[in-house]
């Protein structure tokens, strides 16, 4: 590889790195001079026509188009925020007392209304469902002792569940980072059993859950540290056959 080609390659790689950084770190997309960059790309492609340069040039051009997209979005967002500068907001925050900040917020805030109580109708439906269920242990007319009444049976079940919980947590930890809930549930074995065990890990705070309400996606990951405080948010999911 000639020195000229090497220099060109390094320059293109540097451009790609800068443009990628703007995209990934959400930096100001106008911090790069797109016009100069395109002129330079044109010079390079006219001078060097080897395959590697063309490929890198195409990659750079793609990154430029992404940054142009970010610039367009930036302008749209700025227009919708009435071109109010963050610096100006910062000054207002410094100069205002908490009550004024709240008063400003109240002008724009319309809280969601929701019911968080059960109705008598729902209670009755629940009760009807409860009494319609067969009594456990008497379905087949069995009058024998329950399995749990055998000595050591409870400890054996508890030990089995603990080991299964440990195995499931280890599997999730080995995946590293956030994993889609449904992908993990369907990854192997009886997915109903996996979902059931996973619900325990979530309740115990050993698995973190994140929900994107707008897209409906649920993500999970092994918790980095288990919090002492109890979890108060319920999440119900239906796992079909």
């Amino acid at each position: 590889m000639s020195r000229g080609v090497r220099v060109t390659r390094e320059e293109l790689l540097r451009m790609i790195a800068i443009l990628s950084e703007i995209e990934s770190s959400r930096l100001d997309p106008f911090s790069v001079d797109v016009s100069n960059l395109l002129s330079r790309l044109r010079e390079i492609i006219e001078r060097e026509r080897d395959v590697e340069t063309i490929v890198l040039d195409a990659e750079t051009l793609y990154r430029v188009s992404v940054v142009l997209g970010l610039q367009q979005r930036w302008i749209r967002d700025r227009a919708s925020s009435l071109f109010i500068d963050a610096g100006m907001v910062y000054t207002k925050i410094i100069a205002s007392d908490p009550k004024s900040l709240v008063t400003a917020f109240l002008q724009a805030w319309r809280p969601i209304v929701r019911l968080e109580q059960i109705s008598v109708d729902l209670l009755l439906k629940g009760y009807q469902h409860f009494i319609s269920r067969p009594t456990r242990g008497l379905v087949k007319g069995e009058a024998g002792p329950l399995a749990l009444s055998r000595p050591g049976a409870y400890e054996a079940i508890e030990s089995q569940i603990s080991s299964e919980l440990g195995a499931l947590l280890a599997e999730l930890s080995s995946m590293g980072g956030w994993v889609k809930y449904w992908d993990f549930i369907k990854a192997g074995g009886d997915r109903r059993a996996r979902a059931y065990l996973l619900s325990y890990l979530i309740s115990r705070g050993e698995v973190d859950v994140r929900i994107n309400t707008l897209s409906g996606e649920i993500w999970i990951r092994a918790a980095e540290r288990v919090l002492d405080e109890p979890r108060t948010v319920s999440l119900a999911l239906t796992v079909g056959d």
Partner: peptide
């Protein structure tokens, strides 16, 4: 869902130390 972006920024823009 709950916050009107433009309304909030307008309210902030109209905040002033004197009004405060």
């Amino acid at each position: 869902v709950e916050v009107d972006k433009q309304e909030l920024l307008k309210a902030f823009a109209s905040l002033s130390p004197a009004e405060t």
